[in-house]
Amino acid sequence: MSFSRNKLYGIILTACIAGYTWIYLSCLWGIKGSRSVNMCFIKSITNIPCPSCGSTRSVLALINGRFLESLYLNPMGFLIAIIIFFAPIWIISDMVTKSSSFLMFYSKMERYLKKPAFSIPLILLVIINWIWNIKKGI
């Protein structure tokens, strides 16, 4: 809510570019479940996977059309894929038409996330995903 339009758009576009670079590099290095470069702080220190570990592999599986494998690796990969695909399109169309619909959407989502009725189920989902991740040994 505190962001100006351009700052938010800059941050999200940078994050998306970083995300695409990361996916490209992962494809290049052939990270497909067998060998993985460990970028996760929690996993490298404690050897326990974090809630979003495995999402790179999940997004890569999704790109290759293996939906079930992607869902099994980490359901958060779907969310990341949706954001990384649609956010740049929305932001660029906003910039072209000089509107700020994405900023309004972002503020609205932030307000929803602060309500306990939305935040508590989401926190529970993340924790369940975390437990599942630890059980799978991602």
């Binding site: 970083a18 970028m39 999402s55």
Partner: peptide
Amino acid sequence: GDSGLGVGKLLTCGGFG
């Protein structure tokens, strides 16, 4: 109170550390 950035950080393992 930056829930949006919080979600971003959560989804990316803390922005790849």
